[in-house]
Amino acid sequence: MRNTTNAEKLSKARIDTAQRSAKETASNGVVIDCNIDELYYSTFKAVRDTSIPVKKNRITAFIGPSGCGKSTVLRCLNRMNDLVRGFRFKGHVHFRGKDIYHPSVDATAVRRFIGMVFQQPNPFAMSIYNNVAFGLRLNSYKGPVAEKVEDALKRSALWDEVKDKLQKSGLSLSGGQQQRLCIARAIATEPEVLLMDEPCSALDPIATRRIEELMVELKTRYTIAIVTHNLQQAQRVADNTGFLYVDTSDGGRCGYLVEFGESGQIFNDPREQYTKDYIRGEFS
């Protein structure tokens, strides 16, 4: 009984996907279209003139020196900045053609479709299994939870390491494993987009490598936007790259987008002088 319904659901999902991709080719495959004219924290102007299209099944990387506002821009994409008091911005962020900052839009709804992986691994103080099942429960998912959990853990390349200790606390894992657990948690609900805010900055090189491989595998099913200040990482994994830089001309520290394009072009043949200097390592 359940199998048939699932099969039906799956086939329906495929049809949905097909329809969707048709719709998306029309808009050039852009899932999130982000256009920030000015962004403030209280009276402090943090970002200006940044417009980045996040394309479907691509990895879009934001690079730039620290303090250039790349995390701020990323957090705009699923309204995590709403939690910061005094946050406001001019511009728009469109998710599949819909303005997510429109007053009628529920921020929590947005975040269910645009998942997030944070800089610090942040598993909940519950079992590994419950960590992954968390999102399913959040969405009151009625289907087979255990299968979904296993699937998510497999796709995040953690299954083999934890399959015998699913009831152990998520906090008992190593840093790299915790981060993969967080990725599993984020993808278990199959969000449309995965935002990753420097996901490897707290990890050692080997764990970093694994996460990078994972991202490349995941992009076949998800759209990924990643903030990193590791240039090699962006070069290795990203399809598109946006370079942000800090403008200190009017006394503040205001980030803005210098250049956006295919990663190959940005890293091998940057158009702007700032980009050239940054990639050559003349400033950091």
Binding site: K9, A13, D16, R20, F95, R96, K98, D106, T108, A109, R112, F113, G135, L136, N139, S140, Y141, G143, K148, A188, T189, E190, P191, E192
Partner: peptide, 15 residues
């Protein structure tokens, strides 16, 4: 937006 996939969906009315 609810047509995107089967798991993620906006908070229901009751939620």
């Amino acid at each position: 937006m609810s047509d995107i996939n089967q798991i993620s969906r906006p908070p229901t009315h009751s939620q």
